[in-house]
Amino acid sequence: MSLDDFPSQTAAPVLLVGVDLGLPHFDAELEELGLLAQTAGLEPVARVTAKRRAPDAALFVGSGKADEIRLLAQHHGAVEVLFDQSLSPAQQRNLERHLGLPVNDRTLLILQIFAQRARSHEGKLQVELARLQYLSTRLVRRWSHLERQTGGAGVRGGPGEKQIELDRRMIGEAIKRTKERLHKVKRQRGTQRRQRERRETFNISLVGYTNAGKSTLFNALVKARAYAADQLFATLDTTTRQLYLGEGVGSVSLSDTVGFIRDLPHGLVDAFQATLQEAVDADLLLHVVDAANPGFPEQIAQVQRVLAEIGAADVPQLLVFNKLDAVAPETQPVLREDHYGLDGVQVPRIFVSARSGEGLAPLRTALAARAAARRVEMTLADDPSLAGVSG
């Protein structure tokens, strides 16, 4: 990896590595890492897992497992090794020297996918900021050209140190410029939100784990043509459309936001603050869940963690369990509408299939009821005397 943009890769063979540190969300099959790799244009050719109480300080997996990884990579012709956990700069450097291959982690893989998928000006700025912040932590130990230190005994400095300082300053300045440009975009979004607020528009944001079907549901509700595919991070840029909910309610604003994922890099959460602000300022969150995924409880928990991190934990939610058509017959829900325990609170839940259209009518009815109730609240807030009249 260099300071240049991430290179495009086409079906390069890679070896996947996961370390079980006793955490409940460990993916023993490395299924999600494999999907991330495929999304980035890579081809997983082998998978290795290890179990440790704690990461090895030097090689993360220990020397014995590192030897096993090297032999397996040679056997399968892998040209890169991907770890399902985040690696420190020192661990990454040591592993590359030990394996003789490029080594990257889950964080870089997600950043690479975002760099490939961002389309809007804002999205590209956000990815660039996250990328620069990631690179800034790997300046001293990551690149060999920064290790050329010169000078006499007991003397630190020389061309190498100057190069390090130069790269630090260049990245620091680039981060500052990108933040300033993002701040302008955020101001523009704020102006657009204030305009919606003046129109007293009811704002709904779609949130959920990546590949839960948010964009497919968005298209089904508003008859839009937002990009949707059965892959991770199919949509990165926020798209907002008007959703008509019938007479008496009119139209509401519906936004499709970027999907969340386990161990989403903090740099991306920070960098995408402008985009995720749509969720923070929403009147209602449609939390879309892949009902056919047996790991949906953990995915819900991950989404809740990110919502809390961006300040959207208190926004009312409606759970939409999507992909009902893919749920096995023996596990089909008895009721299509019920409640689900979310952080100790019973939250309304509706089962739908965005692909077939099943459940969309009850969902629209529920959204219309929420929008109408909100309109009554705003009316009473403007004229409290009406409360006595309505009672």
Rank of each mutant, 00 (worst) to 15 (best):
S8W: 09
A11Y: 10
V19N: 06
L21K: 01
P24R: 07
A28S: 14
L36I: 05
G41P: 00
V45I: 12
K51E: 07
F60A: 05
V61H: 03
V61S: 02
I69N: 08
H75Y: 04
G77V: 11
L82I: 14
Q85P: 00
A90D: 11
A90V: 12
D105T: 05
L111W: 11
L111H: 09
I113A: 03
H121V: 03
L135S: 03
R141N: 05
W143I: 02
H145A: 11
L146G: 07
E147G: 02
R148S: 06
G151A: 07
G157R: 10
E161N: 09
E165M: 10
D167H: 15
I175P: 03
R181H: 12
R181Y: 03
K186I: 04
T191D: 11
R199N: 08
N203D: 05
L221P: 03
K223N: 12
R225V: 07
L245N: 02
G248L: 02
V249W: 10
T257D: 01
A271E: 06
A271R: 08
Q273T: 14
L276C: 08
Q277S: 15
E278A: 15
A279K: 11
L286Q: 10
A292R: 07
P294N: 09
I300Y: 07
V303F: 11
R305A: 13
R305Q: 13
V306T: 15
V306F: 08
I310C: 08
P316L: 10
V320Y: 11
L324F: 10
V327Y: 09
P333I: 05
L335V: 14
R336N: 07
G344Y: 02
V347N: 05
A354P: 05
T365V: 12
A372Y: 02
E377D: 15
D383Q: 07
L386S: 00
